[in-house]
Amino acid sequence: MKLSEIIEILKAQVICDSDLSLDYEIKTACGSDMMSDALAFVKDQGMLLTGLLNPQSVRTAEMLDMKCIAFVRGKIPGDEIIKLAKDRGIALLSTKYRMFTACGRLYSKGLGGGCDEE
C-alpha cells in the first residue's frame, strides 16, 4: 500500500515526511504501545501504529527498518521526536482514529500484519 493511500485511509496529518516519497510502498504494519511487542515483529518495509509518544517509538522503527509511524488518538509528537525521525528518514503521521479503528481501516483495505497466521 502506498504511503499516500495510508494517509488518505487514516485521514492523517503529515507531521514530517522525512523526504519519503508518497509512492513509497508499505507492505506490512504493526500496532502496539509496547515496543518489545513491536520488536518481536521483523518484516521488511513496515509501518508502526502507536500511541507511544516518546523517542523510543522512533528508535524502535529505526531498528526494524520501518519508514513510517502513525500516532493514533490525534497525538502530536514534540520537536525532539520529530528531529530524531527526520534524522532517521522516518515519516511521522498523526491520525484522530483510535488504535483499533486505525488498524482496522488499514487492514480492511488490504494492509496486513505480515504474520504467518493471517
Binding site: D33, M34, M35, S36, D37, L39, A40, V42, T50, L52, N54, Q56, S57, T60
Partner: peptide, 18 residues
Amino acid sequence: VRALGFGAGMGLPNIKKY
C-alpha cells in the same frame, strides 16, 4: 517503565529469538 513502552517481559525472549 511500562508507561514508556517497555517492561512487557519480551526483551530477553526477543534477544534469544534474534
